[in-house]
Lab assay of single mutants.
Amino acid sequence: MPSETPQAEVGPTGCPHRSGPHSAKGSLEKGSPEDKEAKEPLWIRPDAPSRCTWQLGRPASESPHHHTAPAKSPKILPDILKKIGDTPMVRINKIGKKFGLKCELLAKCEFFNAGGSVKDRISLRMIEDAERDGTLKPGDTIIEPTSGNTGIGLALAAAVRGYRCIIVMPEKMSSEKVDVLRALGAEIVRTPTNARFDSPESHVGVAWRLKNEIPNSHILDQYRNASNPLAHYDTTADEILQQCDGKLDMLVASVGTGGTITGIARKLKEKCPGCRIIGVDPEGSILAEPEELNQTEQTTYEVEGIGYDFIPTVLDRTVVDKWFKSNDEEAFTFARMLIAQEGLLCGGSAGSTVAVAVKAAQELQEGQRCVVILPDSVRNYMTKFLSDRWMLQKGFLKEEDLTEKKPWWWHLRVQELGLSAPLTVLPTITCGHTIEILREKGFDQAPVVDEAGVILGMVTLGNMLSSLLAGKVQPSDQVGKVIYKQFKQIRLTDTLGRLSHILEMDHFALVV
């Protein structure tokens, strides 16, 4: 994948999101292997301009796509893939009243899908469409860049269908997702969380590099694949309309690839034109409109599966009536509230959605109805927002919020430890010299600072030695090549209790 991002070429006709291997024109390309080798690009942008032909009021008969309808489940399912879809609609009884809503608040519980998330729908649909058009064949390999849930859905379907599955996901995604993927037989590649989507090191860039190296491999490409919004247009939206008897006044959905909100909203605009569509985008993402909503100094966020630093091709923002931004604290607070007060075992993005819903639905009156999409299960986040310690460490809970008995030293300040200034190293000294210094002084790690004293990161003896043994660096290389740029900081005025929580999850903390 090139470091400079080429513009994806656009073909003359058809839909841009065809499933299957992508040609340089962004659509299915038939021909000899030699032709494909000559024409197939190194990668295709996940934010390529959409060429979708959908228009409100256009006859369904003019759609270029294969459409399906929700099917009634048999008493005995032939395999677990038949437990994807037909998820329950559940009334939220307490939270709406707590925040003064007059309307009825309903939750579409997508964590009841077989793999635990709304992404099971698009995973199965992308595979079925690729099999139907002859792209996927027995023994082929599926590769997908994902925040985890699409990966789980694909790995689940691949396990049943017999495909090899490789999932490329950023490091910030939970260990629970990784464990589930491994249990399903998927191979996992992790990428830096802070890598831009168009960087060769991003999950998108690495996935395309693997595709170019592995024979008979395919990126189904949830960011561009029409099967993504079509899955929701054909099934999720129809289920909502049936469950609500066609009567709903507002739908609120958090947005990642945009397939969920695009597919549902398009069908609702056709069948229930008075329904307002509300999009939820986390602070630090750029999906919301108008652009002024996205202006923030924050560039990272903890909530998973929603928000991006690019506009995915499948996201149709014209069908969203209003956007709201959400933050991590309210997302996790509301997710825990949904679990504790409503018994809905949902993930953090569901918290984002409901946090926005109780604001947006203030305009609705008694007798009206708001539906929220709860995308995934708490299963993926047992060591994250479900953990009091994690919430404390991230600053989303305060010590006084917890009532468990603490040891005698818990409320003492870090400054009472009488710490001395640490050994520091410059980023320009060599790895070999740094190892000598650390061994001589008896230290395992040291902060790396520039000549102005600005902290650049941390270097550890173990990481340097393993990097040297693996051949990633040489003793003569500058130590700046092996620094940890993500590390926890703590102030002298913070409590030892807070430091204790940090050290339970990290090997060190830097006192500043």
Rank of each mutant, 00 (worst) to 15 (best):
2 P>W: 08
2 P>N: 15
3 S>M: 09
4 E>L: 09
5 T>L: 02
5 T>A: 02
8 A>I: 09
8 A>M: 02
11 G>L: 07
11 G>R: 09
12 P>V: 07
12 P>H: 15
14 G>E: 07
15 C>H: 10
17 H>I: 15
18 R>F: 08
19 S>K: 15
20 G>T: 09
21 P>M: 11
27 S>F: 05
31 G>D: 13
31 G>C: 15
37 E>I: 09
39 K>V: 08
39 K>L: 13
42 L>P: 09
47 D>L: 02
56 L>F: 14
61 S>P: 14
62 E>P: 14
64 P>A: 10
65 H>K: 07
65 H>L: 04
67 H>R: 13
68 T>R: 10
76 I>Y: 08
76 I>R: 02
77 L>Y: 08
79 D>A: 02
81 L>W: 02
87 T>G: 06
90 V>E: 02
95 I>Y: 02
99 F>G: 14
100 G>F: 11
104 E>C: 11
105 L>T: 09
105 L>P: 06
113 N>V: 04
120 D>F: 13
121 R>K: 07
132 R>V: 06
133 D>N: 14
138 P>D: 05
141 T>I: 15
142 I>M: 09
148 G>P: 12
152 I>R: 02
158 A>F: 02
161 R>S: 14
161 R>E: 02
165 C>S: 06
166 I>C: 02
172 K>I: 02
173 M>V: 06
175 S>D: 09
175 S>L: 07
183 A>Y: 04
186 A>K: 02
189 V>S: 10
196 R>F: 08
199 S>T: 07
200 P>H: 11
200 P>L: 10
214 I>T: 02
215 P>R: 05
217 S>M: 02
218 H>S: 02
220 L>V: 02
221 D>P: 02
221 D>W: 06
224 R>C: 08
228 N>H: 07
231 A>H: 13
233 Y>D: 07
235 T>P: 02
239 E>F: 02
241 L>D: 02
243 Q>M: 09
244 C>G: 04
245 D>R: 02
250 M>W: 02
252 V>E: 15
254 S>L: 02
256 G>V: 02
258 G>R: 02
258 G>V: 02
260 T>N: 06
261 I>G: 05
266 R>A: 07
268 L>H: 06
268 L>G: 02
270 E>S: 05
272 C>Q: 02
273 P>I: 07
275 C>S: 14
